[in-house]
Every structure is written in structure tokens, then in C-alpha cells.
């Protein structure tokens, strides 16, 4: 069962949030995060060793999120596991009641905290989507029949602002053909780029949930521009946050504008609070979403 899927199917606008598992076993902060964001979201993404940095496993954290009363989106990257492990984790997800999955390539380990690690990339995210679709149909990647199929709601990432767009779009379409049902995007600053992505993908029967990131300070922006793959905060946004008397309030105001704009374009919004969990309810309320 997926509330995310059902809500999208009804044509309603959805909100997803994001929680990060701890680097360790103390899940208290993650729980606080889930309890702050959860009541305002249809589902919460749980990141998978984000930025190629060791964290508690996404699958286990998803189960905790479920037990705390919220619906998780299990993020799975191709970086750390081969096709056996990826498929068996998807089977486990299904058996544990985790339905939503976001299937990603994953950042390269040479940027993470274990640069000595072997990057796996046995398969890529298109191939993983196809594998997940196969599990839903009751077959594994090798074509053998499963004792009990999965019931996954299959998501993937799309990057509307990444040029060259024709090549980016071709990749997204390839993922749709492989079995993607919804996309979540990287943070969006250029709504024209989002519009062009939605216009190209929606007719293919997929939903697009657009990303919003909370930029609490110039330091955060510089960190993103330097270290986060596939995302560049435009100079105008940086100047706006830099010039504000209260940068945090400016970030909130910016997010409200972005959520409002996205509401008129996409099928949902994905909020990445980067630690500013507490302001998310206010952003959603002021954007008219609660």
C-alpha cells in the first residue's frame, strides 16, 4: 500500500520530505526529524549513504520510519551493492511494508568518507528500475520466478536544469520505458526548466515531484555548489540570501515562492530541509498546502 501512489493517482498534489539516517545507531535525531516533517508529508525519503558517506542503512531506517507512523521512500543507489544485494533488499523492503522506492545511481565514493572503497556499479539506475519492475511482475533479473512478487512504487531521479537537456531527457525517457512511475527532481531554481521537464514527461504517464532545498546561509550555498553533484545554486539566489538581514528568513521566503510556483507546474514538491526541519510546516502552510 502506498499513500504516495494513491494520492498521485487521484491527481492531488503531494508533499515529500527527506530524513537522513545517523552515522551510528542513535536514531533520536532522525526520529525528531521524521516527527517534525512526517505529519505534513505524504512520504519521507530516506537517503542511502548520501554523498557516499557512511550512514545507517536506508532499508532499516525506512522500517523505523514506518514504525513511527510515517510512509518512507526507500532510496537505493547502485554504488554499494551488486544486483544480488539490490534485488534482495527490494524483496526485503516489500516484505517489510516499504512500497515507495527511489532508484539512483549514487555519488562516486572518491568524494565520500571512504575513498578507499570499491565502487560497485554492477548495474546502473535504468537497469535497476527494470529489475524492480521485474520483481513487481514476479521475476528476478535472471528471469526466474519469485515466491511472491514485490509491490513497489518505482521512482527515479530527473535533473531538469542539467544541460544538455536533450541528453538528460533521453535518459529520463529511458527510465520511464524501464518502468519508472514517478520522478523526484534535484532542487529546482529555474521554473522554465521544470515546466519543460513536466511537459515532456507527464504525457508518458509519470508523475513529477519537484525538489526544493532550504538554503539557510551563504555557507550552505557555497558548500552545495562545490560539493553536491548535479546541483548549482544560481548567483542571483546566492546574492539574495547573502544580502538579506536574516538569511534564514530569506531562505524560508524563497522556499515559499518556490513551492507556490511548483504547485502550478508539477505533481508534488519534495522538500530537502538541510537541518531546517522546523520551518517546513510554515513554508507549506504559507504556500497554501495545509
Amino acid at each position: 500500500m502506498s499513500r504516495l501512489k494513491d494520492t498521485l493517482a487521484r491527481g492531488e498534489f503531494v508533499v515529500t520530505g527527506e530524513v537522513a539516517p545517523p552515522v551510528g545507531t542513535d536514531v533520536a535525531a532522525m526520529r525528531r526529524s521524521a516527527e517534525t516533517l512526517g505529519p505534513h508529508c505524504h512520504a519521507l525519503n530516506v537517503t542511502d549513504n548520501q554523498a557516499a558517506t557512511l550512514h545507517l542503512a536506508s532499508l532499516g531506517a525506512c522500517r523505523l520510519v514506518l514504525e513511527w507512523g510515517f510512509e518512507p521512500v526507500f532510496q537505493q543507489t547502485c554504488r554499494d551493492r551488486n544486483r544480488l544485494a539490490l534485488q534482495s533488499d527490494l524483496l526485503a523492503a516489500s516484505a517489510l511494508g516499504i512500497t515507495n522506492v527511489l532508484l539512483l545511481t549514487g555519488d562516486d565514493p572518491r568524494w565520500g568518507d571512504h575513498p578507499e572503497a570499491k565502487a560497485v556499479f554492477d548495474i546502473d539506475s535504468t537497469q535497476l528500475v527494470r529489475a524492480a519492475a521485474g520483481l513487481n511482475a514476479g521475476r528476478d533479473m535472471h528471469g526466474d520466478e519469485l515466491t511472491g512478487a514485490t509491490d513497489l512504487f518505482i521512482g527515479a531521479a530527473v535533473f531538469p536544469e542539467a544541460e544538455p537537456w536533450d541528453i538528460q531527457l533521453a535518459r529520463a525517457v529511458q527510465k520511464v520505458d524501464a518502468g519508472v512511475e514517478f520522478f523526484q527532481t534535484q532542487a529546482i531554481f529555474d521554473t522554465d526548466a521544470l515546466e519543460r521537464a513536466v511537459a515532456a514527461l507527464r504525457p508518458r504517464g509519470v508523475k513529477v515531484i519537484a525538489g526544493v532545498i532550504l538554503l539557510r546561509s551563504v555557507r550552505t550555498i557555497d558548500f552545495i555548489n562545490e560539493r553536491v553533484a548535479g546541483l548549482m545554486v544560481p548567483e542571483a539566489v546566492r546574492e539574495r540570501v547573502a544580502g538579506a538581514a536574516d538569511p534564514k528568513e530569506e531562505a524560508v521566503a524563497l522556499a515559499i515562492e518556490q513551492v507556490r510556483a511548483i504547485r502550478g507546474i508539477a505533481d508534488g514538491v519534495h522538500i530537502m530541509p538541510l537541518g531546517l526541519d522546523g520551518v517546513v510546516p510554515r513554508i507549506l502552510a504559507e504556500a497554501g498546502l495545509t
Binding site: 539512483l104 545511481t105 546502473d124 535504468t126 535533473f159 541528453i167 553533484a229 548535479g230
Partner: peptide, 8 residues
């Protein structure tokens, strides 16, 4: 299959 999400 690519590009991945890091391409910019």
C-alpha cells in the same frame, strides 16, 4: 546508460 545525475 547515462548520464548520471552528477553531470552538469
Amino acid at each position: 546508460n547515462g548520464p548520471c545525475g552528477g553531470m552538469w
